[in-house]
């Protein structure tokens, strides 16, 4: 429990060439979750995308991310013409995981297994998108507003899945506004807001 899965030191990140966050430092141990809070536009998504390696940070250090990360953003990455099973099986194949049955079960998707993703409701799509996390087999989940369009019982399903993940030595960073009902540290992103708009030219130089 004391081994840190993810360590972030003095991280600064930018969105669209404008510096959004600076001096972000935290450490996340195996078995623990970190909830990111902050108003819209405060940089939660930017921080998660930087941690996932989708965009480079301006300064600072990230240790432990990279190949450990399973990222779930605003969109679910579903193919509308593939069935629920085919969508999950594709990601299981990419991540080299075995059976998709536990993932289907955790989000109660068995009854929908043969339905095409385009015929699912928004909440069902979201559940399928979250079930993908279970077939990645990765220890560090980075979740961006995972409960959007989920109903109360689906939120409970999701919270249970995260809790099981934490019990088995995983960790999660979750940007959310609702209370998920399990113990988690809270990081207020607003406290790290970049003061002066700087770094535009620097980002250009990196690109």
């Amino acid at each position: 429990m004391d081994e840190a899965l993810l360590t972030v030191e003095g991280l600064a990140c930018a969105r669209g060439g404008l510096s959004v966050l600076e001096g972000v430092s935290f450490s996340l141990a195996a078995g623990s979750a970190l909830v990111l809070r902050g108003p819209n536009g405060s940089g939660k998504t930017t921080l998660l995308r930087t941690l996932a390696g989708l965009q480079p940070g301006l300064a600072g250090r990230i240790a432990g991310a990279g190949e450990a990360v399973a990222y779930a953003g605003h969109s679910d990455g579903l193919k509308s013409t593939l069935s629920v099973t085919e969508n999950l099986q594709f990601w299981a194949g990419v991540f080299g995981a075995g059976s998709i049955a536990p993932a289907l079960e955790a989000f109660q998707l068995e009854a929908l297994a043969d339905r095409a993703a385009q015929s699912l409701s928004a909440g069902q799509k979201r559940r399928l998108g979250l079930a993908r996390l279970l077939v990645t087999g990765r220890p560090l989940w980075l979740l961006d507003e995972p409960t959007v369009s989920l109903d109360v019982s689906a939120v409970r399903m999701f919270a249970a899945a995260v809790e099981r993940h934490l019990e088995t030595g995983g960790a999660a960073v979750i940007a959310t506004h609702i209370d998920l009902g399990f113990a988690a540290d809270v990081l207020d992103v607003g406290a790290f807001r970049a003061r002066a708009p700087r770094g535009g030219a620097f980002d250009e130089a990196l690109a």
């Binding site: 990222y71 605003h74 990455g77 579903l78």
Partner: peptide, 10 residues
Amino acid sequence: DGSLELLVTA
């Protein structure tokens, strides 16, 4: 549909 981002992190 977002799967390109997921492929990048895969």
